[in-house]
């Protein structure tokens, strides 16, 4: 089947019920999206599917065939970081940073929709994303600074 990921077209051959996360990580070696729970509730694996932040671990790859997928690897353009990436970097909004790619994806979806989100909007939009290191206050700062 054909997939559109980060502006590239890929032809892959896996069962349609394989998770998008496995396809990204194992088959396409796009390992920026992480596994954290496998049940759609930690946000570590989030990618943009037609602009919506979506858990790739519970998304069967067959369901995204005609959609545009963007992963953390696809956010920077010509070596320039996406403003959300830059904000996370500037604010040091991580410790171990394992949650970071999922956090950035959720924040990109949010700021595309609502460029200057309120604290409450940030909390609502990010509620799925777990940061076990609890860098939450920094992440809120970073998103507020985008």
């Amino acid at each position: 089947m054909k997939l559109h990921i980060n502006g590239n077209e890929y032809d892959i051959d896996t069962p349609e019920n394989t998770s998008l996360l496995d396809v990204l990580r194992i088959h396409l070696k796009l390992t920026g999206s992480k596994y954290g729970c496998g049940e759609g509730i930690c946000g570590a694996c989030r990618v943009l599917i037609d602009g919506h932040a979506t858990a790739s671990c519970i998304t069967p790859v067959g369901s995204v065939q005609h959609k545009e997928v963007v992963t953390i690897e696809g956010l920077a353009k010509d070596g320039r970081l996406h403003p959300v990436q830059q904000a996370f970097l500037d604010e040091d909004a991580f410790q171990c940073a394992y949650c970071t790619s999922g956090m950035i994806i959720s924040a990109v979806a949010l700021t595309n929709k609502s460029p200057k989100p309120s604290r409450q909007e940030i909390i609502d939009a990010m509620q799925i994303n777990i940061c076990r290191c609890c860098a939450y206050p920094r992440i809120i700062e970073a998103i507020s600074n985008v």
């Binding site: 990580r25 796009l30 390992t31 920026g32 999206s33 992480k34 596994y35 992963t71 953390i72 690897e73 956010l75 920077a76 970081l81 990436q85 830059q86 996370f88 970097l89 500037d90 040091d92 991580f94 940073a97 394992y98 970071t100 790619s101 950035i104």
Partner: peptide, 19 residues
């Protein structure tokens, strides 16, 4: 000083063992 290899983390480039 910001995290020394911070850029690798915000771009998904850093390889954890699981990657």
């Amino acid at each position: 000083i910001p995290k020394i290899n911070g850029r690798d983390f915000v771009t998904g480039k850093h390889q954890y063992t699981s990657d």
